Structure formats: structure tokens, C-alpha cells
Simulated assay, not measured.
Amino acid sequence: MTTIRAVLFDFSGTLFRLEQDETWLTDLTDHEGERLDIEAQAELMRRMTAPVGQVVDLDPDHLHAWHNRDRDPGLHRKVYLEVLRQSGVPRPEQAAALYERLIDPGQWTPYPDTETVLKSAAEKGLKVGVLSNIAFDIRPAFTQRGWDTHVDEFVLSYEVGAIKPELEIFRKAVGSLGVRAEETLMVGDSEEADGGARALGCEFALVDPLPTTERPDALLAALRAHELL
């Protein structure tokens, strides 16, 4: 069997999760001026973080933006403001303020084992990359914690012009780490997007994008299952 020499981690739902912060949502009001209830708040967050799948009905212009949102920050902002509008946040100033929080990497919560898995993989001599369909720079989420020292490469869709599951983005990620696809494990929360790495020859480990309090060690378990830790 080929030896695994590198690990690629997805970001959202894998290493970090955007979790509901009640302080963001308490002042949001719907079309009737009523505050959003708890169920509406939870659905709003689900729609803003779904890795694949269209979450609201969109006109052709916004549909184009949806399909290309992770290639272009302008399109990302455009379509998610529309998602917010259709999800019960009709006031533009409220939607814009919430959107800015959603794209602030400092607002994202790491999973309990994120630091350990990054550090352990690096100490084992594995090349470590973060590969994300994303339209904003997530590096600050790592640098502010000192975790960037454990990551060799960040491959972000809006910077490279390709998105998972397109093979080009996996090729760029593998190439940036200086390994072959067969020597690489991709860890992610989406069978459709992250699992696309298998078409290039990578191994793949699926993790569940549960709330961070409900998933203490899935990253470590994924690497242990491949005998990397």
C-alpha cells in the first residue's frame, strides 16, 4: 500500500464551525418587524453554512452568483445577502451586518481536537494543508491561535479559481505540498465536495459537521483509522 505523506483538511464543518451566537441574532427582525424565533435563527445559520445544495429559490442572476460564490468574494456577498433576505432578514443594514460577522474568521469556533490534530500531524512529519471552498481569507483563524505553524499550505477556492469537487483544486493542493495524490488523505465533511479528491487518487475520510460540543475527537479518529497517529 502507498504510504500517506500528506493530509488535506477542509475548513468549514471539519476544522472549524460557524456556530450560532445569540448576540448576532437577537436584534434581527422579520418582514413584520418581529424578532426571529429560535427555530428561525437555527435555520438561518444552517443556510449560511451548508457546504453544497441550493438553500433558497434564486433568479437566474443570483443563481449564477450561487454557483460561483466561492470563486469570487463579490458574488459571495451578493448571493448571501439574497439568502438572508429570503430567510427572514429583509432589512439591508441588518443583513449586511450579519454577513460581515459570518465572513470574519475570528468568529468561527474550532473543533476540540483541531489544534491537536494539526500539531500531531506536523510532528509526525506529515505535510498539512487546508483546502477550502471559501470566498474570504481564513488564515487569521489559525494565525491568531498560533496554529499556522502546523499548516504548510492554504489552498482557498477564491484565490485559485477552482472549487471542490473540481479536480483542478485538488491538483493544486497536492502539488503545493509536493506529494502525489495517492500519498494524500483528504478529510472533510462533504461526500460530494471533499470526497471528490478520490477521483484524483487521494484517500478520503468523512467527518460529521456536528456542533463542536458534540464532536470531540472525529479528526483524531480519522487519522488514526489511516494509521497516521
Rank of each mutant, 00 (worst) to 15 (best):
T14R: 00
M186I: 11
P165Q: 03
M186G: 07
W147A: 07
A121V: 12
F204Y: 15
P216N: 02
P60C: 06
N68Q: 12
S120G: 05
L223F: 02
D217C: 00
E93W: 05
K78Q: 15
T109N: 08
A181F: 05
E32K: 01
S132D: 07
M48Q: 11
S157W: 07
A6P: 14
E153Y: 01
R224K: 10
P60Y: 03
A193N: 15
L8P: 07
T3E: 15
K78Y: 11
E39D: 13
L131P: 13
D137F: 03
P60T: 08
E227K: 11
R5A: 12
F136I: 14
L210T: 13
W24G: 00
L185W: 06
G106V: 01
L75K: 08
A65T: 00
L220M: 07
E93C: 01
R47S: 04
L185I: 07
P92F: 07
F9A: 08
K172Q: 13
V79P: 02
T114E: 06
P140V: 11
E159K: 12
L167V: 02
T143W: 10
E19H: 01
K172A: 15
R171D: 09
T149Q: 15
I169N: 06
E153F: 00
E123G: 09
A181E: 06
L185M: 10
V130E: 13
D137G: 05
T26V: 07
T3N: 08
F204R: 07
S87M: 12
D10T: 06
P92G: 09
Y80A: 00
E168C: 00
D72G: 12
L84H: 03
L58F: 08
G201F: 02
G188I: 02
L177N: 10
R47C: 09
S190R: 07
